[in-house]
Design a protein around this nucleic acid. Sequence first.
DNA 1: CTCCACTCCATACGGCGTACGGAGTCTCAT
DNA 2: ATGAGACTCCGTACGCCGTATGGAGTGGAG
Lengths: 243, 243
Amino acid sequence: MACESRPRRLVRALWGETAPGTRGPKPTLNVDDVVVRAVELADRDGLGAVSMRSLARSLGYSTMALYTYVATRDDLISVMLDHAMAELTAEPVPDGSWREQVEALARRNWEWCLRHPWVLEQEHLRTGLGPNELAAAEQMLGVLSEGLAGADAVLTWQALTSFVRGSARRVLAAADGGGWDGAWWEDAVGAFEEIVPDPSERFPVLTRLRAEGAFDGDGGDYLEFEARRAFEHGLARLLDGLR
Amino acid sequence: MACESRPRRLVRALWGETAPGTRGPKPTLNVDDVVVRAVELADRDGLGAVSMRSLARSLGYSTMALYTYVATRDDLISVMLDHAMAELTAEPVPDGSWREQVEALARRNWEWCLRHPWVLEQEHLRTGLGPNELAAAEQMLGVLSEGLAGADAVLTWQALTSFVRGSARRVLAAADGGGWDGAWWEDAVGAFEEIVPDPSERFPVLTRLRAEGAFDGDGGDYLEFEARRAFEHGLARLLDGLR
DNA sequence: CTCCACTCCATACGGCGTACGGAGTCTCAT
DNA sequence: ATGAGACTCCGTACGCCGTATGGAGTGGAG
């Protein structure tokens, strides 16, 4: 199957259409097996843990066997992404007012990002043609366009997903941090205080807000409480702004 | 200098404090030289182009010489980030109403992200202790806390930066795309239409909105116009929500 | 004048994505 | 029945990556 273009192959993989060829031995795996395992690995240890080698090992195959199912690692990630997005439309839109529905979908999306942090590690692959990605867009725009004219619905959709993902990303950055486990942070702050002996002079506002406790939660349990509050606050203001 | 902890070294690098030791030969470079060059490379070709090897070559040094100035590549990126953030506070907050000021700062931040796309490629590991990052926070919170109580100012700051960065990220994903240069996309859409012969049945809302032209700009010049519109729309609604 | 902290560098290790080609297996055309 | 050849799976290799290790040369401190 050296004759098929990469985009076609990707779209076929996204929609679970198997190759038509029936000549050689039957594949003993399929794209879905590979993708499911890859998502498991990514959920546990991040995208970095999904190397072609480790994924293949985890499936009990050779590295190169994976390329039977997926053209490149980037394509694999695209399919993983769409696969994970199935969760977004697994349940119907809840009952409620327009605002409540939009809120619920946004919150669902946010929680989904936290459940699959690797989704945000991803830079620019974007296909926009996978079944679940389209279904999620369909669902969100279906609700939004009940209350907004076409172009406004699209703009609002973009604003919402921008906010949801930006916010989730911020939570994750604060949460796992990449290795500042208290000791790291203390050490860094120590050095900071040596270099900037009187922060209140250079950063009066920050100092005042800190003293007021406005940053409470900066430490360990920032994630579950403070970050959710920031998300809910921003979401509420955004929805307020939609009248 | 094998005795200094990594956090301390990073904080020192962020603040441009040179090591106190004066024993051996003088360094012929300094952290700033390295960081400036790294930012140039990243601005041009993304974070991926900033490998220790390519950066060193571009400076005319051996790879390992860089480790004299920076403990790891991650630390380098942290310092690059803070360095780039100097632009955020290079100009004072413009005159105007509270809302106009917040808007201007948010827009400045958004444009900054587009100018340095690599900023959004990372986002994990964060320090929060660099002079320019602190200055940017100080500036933004200074304005916000003129109109909002302490805790609200912080929540709003988080919501704003979440939105700004999420939105910029979306623009960049749409813009450079990672290799869908029209031909790619056409090919993918062709395969899509074969697999899903009647999209209007499965995705009625998307089909209708597309027919209405609500997605116009999906193609080539999405970036400069449509994406900016989406950003301005979302920002305006967010600010509306703040009363 | 000696020591040794220091800068700079060459080499090496274990990872990565994936190009290439080969061995084995199955279907189809003959 | 028998090739032809499409197909799956795999071993090896190439050129990247970050960085550990240790060595050569340098110049201020004792």
